[in-house]
């Protein structure tokens, strides 16, 4: 009993520490790549070519003063960043890094993932309401409305994958793609899913909650020091996990292209996540921001009908040709 507990705990620590380091270097990669696109140098002072910059940033945030505003609701105000951070960590529990290399190999992995990412709205809403600041409040409302709008089309896209593989276990979803990655038969769905990921994680071109010109920084405007850092870590870990889920569902997870092998499975999975990370960053550098009414229009009037239509097509083809799995 204790041995199982200890093994699982060590597994979890083995996942969380590299994850936090990955998040730290995600921010450095973002600054470096964006600097490259805009013909600047980016951080290059601390460490060799700025490689220690994320650690310095972390240390700086750690020693800063935690400001708890007087008219804020203190309990909820403290709870919100913790909530965001915890939810972004526990969604990694079902992600398989290679065959059998997963913390909780549940049959309902996909559903668990969707459930946890839906709960992410709570962190945003609680922080916006408890801050008792107009910017935070408006930012939280916008952010929540945006996240729930795109979640539906993401869910329906995931159902397309479910139909094709006949399971919700993420390991089995990857194994079902041994012959062909699902990005090929489900190309429109996978593009829609990725755009949904961008909207769900409040990234460009959907970063309206943080529209700094009008809302300063959105729902986390009142946060300082570690409260802010937890939001920041949570958001970037969310982006990584969204990239991981997209790779698992559409790019064959840890499978190497054409079965070439060469590198270990986990490395292929890491490369695929890195691909999405770089895509996230490049999107931020090259795309302008949507207007809010355009964003909602895109979510409800384009993505939702399109997702439903693609679902009808997929199930029609699978039923008509009797290609259903199992």
């Amino acid at each position: 009993m204790w041995l199982t507990f200890l093994t699982i705990l060590l597994n979890i620590i083995d996942l969380v520490i590299p994850l936090l380091i990955a998040v730290a270097y995600f921010t450095l990669a973002e600054r470096k790549i964006m600097a490259g696109i805009q013909r600047r140098k980016g951080p290059n002072v601390i460490g060799y070519m700025g490689l220690l910059q994320p650690l310095a940033d972390g240390l700086k945030l750690f020693v800063k003063e935690t400001v708890l505003p007087t008219n804020a609701n203190i309990v909820l105000f403290v709870l919100a960043p913790l909530c965001t951070f915890i939810l972004s960590l526990i969604s990694w529990a079902v992600i398989p890094f290679s065959f059998g290399n997963v913390i909780a190999d549940t049959q309902l992995g996909g559903l668990y993932f969707l459930a946890v990412s839906s709960l992410g709205v709570y962190g945003v809403l609680i922080s916006g309401w408890s801050s008792n600041s107009k910017y935070a409040f408006l930012g939280a409302l916008r952010s929540a409305a945006q996240m729930v709008s795109y979640e539906i089309s993401m869910g329906i896209s995931l159902i397309n994958v479910c139909l094709c593989v006949g399971t919700l276990n993420l390991t089995e979803i990857v194994i079902a793609q041994l012959d062909i990655w699902l990005v090929f038969p489900l190309l429109p769905v996978s593009i829609m899913f990725f755009i949904g990921c961008l909207a769900e994680t409040n990234r460009h071109p959907f970063d309206l909650p943080e529209a700094e010109a009008e809302l300063v920084s959105g729902y986390n405007v009142e946060y300082s020091a570690m409260g802010f850092a937890l939001f920041f870590l949570g958001e970037y870990a969310n982006m990584l996990v969204m990239g991981a889920l997209t790779s698992i569902c559409f790019l064959g997870g840890w499978l190497s292209p054409f079965g070439v092998g060469i590198l270990p499975d986990g490395i292929w999975f890491g490369l695929k996540i890195s691909f999405f990370v770089i895509l996230f960053i490049v999107m931020r550098a090259i795309l302008p921001r949507y207007r809010y009414d355009q964003l909602m229009k895109l979510g409800w009037k384009c993505f939702l009908p399109l997702a439903l239509a693609l679902f009808f097509i997929s199930q029609g083809i699978l039923m008509g040709f009797d290609w259903l799995p199992n």
Binding site: T66, Y112, G227
Partner: peptide, 20 residues
Amino acid sequence: EYYPVLIFLGFSLALAGVIF
């Protein structure tokens, strides 16, 4: 199936609390 998730929840709660 969900025992590891429970431990993960406890661990991340502790980690977030310690950091903050």
